[in-house]
């Protein structure tokens, strides 16, 4: 497979997953706000600020917005083109990549991304309809993402290209789950509220909900939805497909299958980093994590995902730099 094509597939996987997760965070925050207003007045700003902080784009946000409020943050994360992580930017980039390699994916996958793009572009038209709300918009984004993944499973050749899509998707998802968890760090409890109190639990439940994890959590745990149990579930669950551990496991397996390397071994730096990160997470207990600090742990995971992204790039996508002038000179010298 062409390096350029593999690169595009990897990024399509990442961008679609990113758009889905941004929709999840916004969706859940709107719900949380509804729940929360019953307890305290004037918390809106804190909430929306936490969202922007968890995405890591606070400075960019301040460049374009004076205060922080629901409309500003929603616009920033949904449709603003100068935010490279907005839903609009993610979907546009996914589509741009898909357009470059549309002969390499199934017709159905291409049409799904293309329709998703036109849907996002016409967001306003969709919201102008009296029967639709922001919730419906985010729901649609999620549905497009599910449809894409379903089509990838059902209509696409499961070989090298599929593996690059999967690597991109799971790397992005591990990162996004960590960001959703980190939301809690940026969200101070209102005065008079304590860890384990009503508001605290409400937020942890919302975090579960934003990962579509409520049912899975309930059927696997008897414990309450408190800090330890929820973070433990979203980081360490072996079988829940959005837990960080699960994502890293998939990521590591898919990477090895590209090079055909056995479990427990590595053929390149990307596989080595992926294996070590997976080991670190898999062999940690939730108590270890909280001892280090949840935010500190998450920060460390995110940094290592960035390193992993870089080494995947170097291993598979980076074309050995061609010095055009030298190349031209050599070729000229060979002409008679």
């Amino acid at each position: 497979m062409l390096s350029r094509v593999a690169n595009s597939l990897y990024w399509i996987g990442r961008y679609i997953e990113r758009a889905e997760n941004t929709a999840r965070i916004l969706d859940v925050n709107l719900q949380l706000l509804d729940d929360f207003e019953a307890y305290v007045d004037g918390v809106e700003e804190v909430f929306w600020e936490a969202i922007v902080q968890s995405t890591g784009d606070v400075e960019l946000f301040r460049e374009h917005h004076d205060g922080i409020d629901a409309d500003g943050v929603t616009a920033f994360l949904t449709r603003e083109a100068h935010n490279p992580n907005s839903i609009f930017s993610s979907v546009s980039s996914a589509r741009e990549n898909a357009r470059m390699i549309r002969d390499q994916i199934s017709e159905e996958m291409w049409e799904c991304i293309n329709e998703m793009y036109h849907f996002v572009r016409n967001e306003q038209e969709f919201l102008d309809n009296e029967e639709t709300t922001n919730y419906d918009f985010f729901e649609e984004i999620k549905n497009y993402s599910y449809r894409f993944v379903g089509l990838m499973e059902a209509t696409y050749f499961h070989s090298e290209g599929y593996k690059f899509l999967q690597v991109g998707r799971y790397l992005e998802r591990a990162d996004q789950t960590s960001r959703i968890l980190d939301l809690k760090y940026f969200l101070p409890l209102p005065d008079g509220q304590q860890g384990g109190g009503t508001v605290d639990i409400a937020i942890w439940v919302a975090i579960l909900r934003s990962s579509s994890a409520v049912d899975a959590f309930q059927s696997n745990r008897t414990g309450e939805a408190d800090a330890l149990n929820v973070s433990g579930f979203l980081i360490l669950s072996q079988n829940f497909p959005r837990s960080i551990r699960y994502c890293l496991r998939q990521l590591e397996q898919q990477l090895r299958s590209i090079s055909g390397t056995d479990e427990g071994f590595y053929a390149n730096r990307a596989e080595k980093l992926a294996g070590r990160l997976m080991g670190d997470v898999a062999y940690a207990s939730i108590d270890d994590i909280w001892e280090e600090g949840l935010h500190e742990f998450i920060d460390r995971v995110q940094l290592r995902l960035i390193g992993l992204n870089q080494s995947i790039y170097e291993e598979y996508f980076q074309l050995p730099a061609v010095d055009m002038e030298a190349e031209i000179a050599v070729q000229r010298s060979q002409q008679q």
Partner: peptide, 20 residues
Amino acid sequence: EIVEGRDLVVRNSHVFMRTT
């Protein structure tokens, strides 16, 4: 395959494409 110029390179008067 659909290729762009940057996907191709010439070595010893043969054309190659750069793959994973």
